[in-house]
Amino acid sequence: MSKELLKGNYAVIKGALLAGCVAYFGYPITPASEIAEAAAYYFPPAGRTFVQAESEIASINMVYGAAGAGVRCMTASSGPGISLKQEGVSYIAGAELPCVIVDIMRGGPGLGNIAPEQGDYHQVVKGGGHGNYKCVVYAPNSAQEMCDLTYKAFDTADKYRNPVYVLADGFIGQMMEQVDFSHLKPIEPKKLEWGVHGTPDSKNLINSIYLDPDVLEAHNRKLQEKYKKIEENEAIFENYKVDDADLILIGYGITSRILRSVVDEARNSGLKVGLFRPKTLWPLAKDEINRLVGSAKKFLVVEMSNGQLVDDIRLIVEGKIPVEFYGRMGGNVPTVDEVLEITKKLS
């Protein structure tokens, strides 16, 4: 059987190992702990490094150390832990190192709770730490995509020498689904040539300090050029029944699964409703969103947050059509019925 019934959190680790990830540094936190547990289980027998760090801060700096060696490495956490990691992520972005960071979102702010939420959008998509940087953000909505997008995240990270997030909510992490591995070939781990390997021909420098304002500005301009390239090339998305839709629902992660059911039920009631689901939150598929602005009359963005993705959608739409918002917080997952009711009102 090439399929396995797996939690999203476990699928992340299998995807990572298939992608040639050689080091995992992490700290336990609900609802992301199974990622560390799976890493602890699978990494050492595969001759790879697993270290449970003393803190989230230490773990992201261990990632900085391993990423600086030009190897594939990763960490994972949930919102409070991601907050702590942000300094390190900024350094990694500044030093242009590739790595993968998985965030299994929980309810906030503060200690909040361990239920699923999508309130980390701003801290992950907007950079989060100090300085002018961006991270690519994948938003899986199934256990299969937890595996596939983690696998892809390592390629993207290497391609641009940039940190890449896999941003999921507690539901996607905790849910079990069939995962098929047959399309993922194991990638042979290697050390990229710009890294520090402790050899005579790898006396490279990993840093993010540029004292001279002109030099730092030039570095920043180079980063912005890179981000522009990423924006042009890396946005991915999924449409569902949008072609004739008057109202297009927009959501990512678990919300997009609920919205898909809403679309089906709305269509059963004769409403022309579709779904646009960004699979990358940065970059967002601007061109596609603009195309949909041309065909739809209205957008409804649904999030398990106070409305964070909706800000970016509104920036793209520029008021050309109404962009409505519906959100739940605190770990409450919107039901199909409640969204369907709003959908009917807006149609």
């Binding site: 261990m62 391993a66 520090v196």
Partner: peptide, 13 residues
Amino acid sequence: RAPAVATGTKRVN
């Protein structure tokens, strides 16, 4: 964070 960075690089080198 130097000891954490050092840990990261030593483990893979």
